[in-house]
């Protein structure tokens, strides 16, 4: 039987015959279901997207054999859906809209299959099942690439945040400062250490000031990290000053029983700077 060897042939025939009508009805279904967001995409863009997806599906169906989303025939369709999903992520679309974009194709497809197989109910069911399978899988694929793209965005932002969260500034010749804002977890503390050590080499710094004014709480782990950083800074041949220690944090450190013997501490960035100037032999004079 020919249907065995090419289960897609009927579907593609229907699609080819009613192409324009299906496209129009699909677009209508998209607006009915509220998937068309005219503030994100223009009418024209949506029309172009839908048309290219539909053509790609038609081409993929023309390829012989049975339906397998993994086969080469479906690569163009998947690429298209991927691009469209990525654009939706970039423009702030939701995953629901992105998935329903393809799922709304069901309604016109079923409608036209119904017209072609009005009297042959078994064939109709077979074809509906097949097209349903195809569209569902495309929908799931769309959902997956949407999530992947979103994850990529999150990872990118995390990396950016990491960079932003550990800036090292040169305050004076031989003095670098690192103002810390927000909670210090192990990963960030490691970044802080790396960045400050690199900065010491790069700027030939004698003194590194770590300002923790913006750190809300210090626990044993954070204190441990600060002590380690100070020790590493000393090994490199520079001196570490920790500033911005609030009265509350001073109390916590003592209550925790953390000993910070080798670390120079100052209450404010100002006094840390003063100490740094003193150490490298500079005096500040008013005019």
């Amino acid at each position: 039987m020919t249907e065995e060897s090419n289960e897609l042939s009927t579907l593609v025939a229907v699609l080819r015959a009613d192409y324009d009508a299906i496209l129009d009805e699909w677009l209508a279904a998209q607006s009915d279901e509220g998937v068309r967001r005219t503030e994100l995409f223009s009418e024209r863009e949506i029309r172009d997207q839908s048309r290219s997806v539909l053509s790609a599906i038609q081409d993929a169906l023309t390829g012989n054999g049975e339906f397998r989303l993994e086969s080469e025939d479906w690569e163009p369709v998947k690429d298209l859906l991927k691009t469209i999903s990525q654009e939706r992520v970039d423009r702030g679309g939701t995953i629901e809209e992105s998935t329903r974009f393809i799922l709304t194709l069901k309604q016109p497809m079923f409608e036209h299959l119904k017209r072609h197989f009005r009297s042959r109910i078994e064939d109709l069911l077979d074809e509906i099942w097949l097209s349903s399978r195809i569209i569902d899988q495309l929908g799931m694929y769309t959902m997956r690439v949407f999530l992947e793209e979103r994850d990529a965005v999150i990872r990118r932002q995390q990396a950016e945040m990491m960079d932003l969260s550990t800036p090292v500034v040169q305050v004076w010749d031989g003095i670098v400062a690192l103002p810390l804002i927000g909670t210090l977890d192990s990963e960030r503390a490691q970044m802080v250490m790396e960045n400050v050590l690199e900065a010491i080499v790069e700027r030939e710094a004698l003194i590194a000031i770590i300002d923790i004014t913006g750190v809300p709480a210090v626990d044993t782990l954070v204190a441990q990290h600060l002590i380690k950083t100070a020790a590493a800074i000393r090994l490199m041949g520079a001196e570490c000053v920790i500033s911005g220690i609030s009265p509350r944090i001073a109390q916590t450190i003592v209550h925790l029983g953390v000993d910070m013997p080798e670390v120079v501490t100052r209450g404010s960035l100002e006094s840390a700077l003063q100490y740094a100037f003193q150490t490298i032999g500079l005096t500040v004079r008013g005019k």
């Binding site: 790396e194 030939e204 004698l206 590493a232 000393r234």
Partner: peptide, 28 residues
Amino acid sequence: VVVGVRPAVAMTLVELGMTLGEVETALN
């Protein structure tokens, strides 16, 4: 005076608990 400790070396030594407290250090 110990000079030229690289960042990676400094971090490793600290992790190993060898802070060489008794030795003077310099950048170069």
